[in-house]
Amino acid sequence: MIRIDNVSKAFGGLQAVRGVSFEVAQGSITGLIGPNGAGKSSLFNIVAGLFPPSSGRVLLDGHDITGLPPHKLFHRGLVRTFQIPHEFSRMTVRENLMVVPPGQSGENLFKTWLRWDKVKQQDSEVLDRVDDVLKFLEITHVADELAGNLSGGQKKLLDLGRTMMTDAKMVLLDEPGAGVNRTLLGKIREAILRLNRERGYTFCVIEHDMDLISALCEPVHVMADGELIASGSMEALRQNEEVREAYLGGGASGRMGETARQPSTDEGEPS
């Protein structure tokens, strides 16, 4: 579905992404992990059109989408969430969701003045869809709250909810579990699984919570220092020496791996 083809990105002297290539297969929930500063978010932002890569290409369903701006990618079925929730604070939860559906005639100023009945009728269809999403995420009780008043976890759910207000094909989730308590995390995991199974969304997920990654993702790609260092199932990656060194920790050998790595960090990598 998405093919990342030899993508590199430099910010000034910092090489954030170095020649990364992988594919996100249709219908999969693909994981992307790696220590902080590995280049995951940079790669995501390139795919999502926030900035173009220094070199390389991104293909969606075989079409080159490199450098297309986010709002155009949206209309090709590619949507995303953000590491820090990006809610519309001074709008209600319901309005946050109502913004999203494409092709609303009421987004044309003159139609709001001249074709008010049609605008109203379309808005009521949008409302129906909003109700479904609120119910699905079990946040109906906060529908009329200002989104800025929600808890961090609820904001994460709302971000996810916005991706459900369109017929997305491909959803990029940037740390859906960050700062979310266990109960809510379970809910987010369920929501992702159901969207994948029932609506056929393809996901690519950045996450630090290994339990969440194990529960959701197959395959998982590992990045470190801007490079893709391994790919495979989570079980296989846990046995991979290089991955353990770079990242996983988890038990004495992993920690030793990290300690062993220390000198090279001191030699000048940005940490």
């Binding site: 999502a48 709002h71 949206f74 809610e87 519309f88 604070s89 109502m98 609303q104």
Partner: peptide, 23 residues
Amino acid sequence: SPWGRVLRAIRENEPATAAAGKS
């Protein structure tokens, strides 16, 4: 109207509004 809704969304958060497909 939905038009005003988009404007307020832009005011609140530009990247999220762009990610929701609005120019």
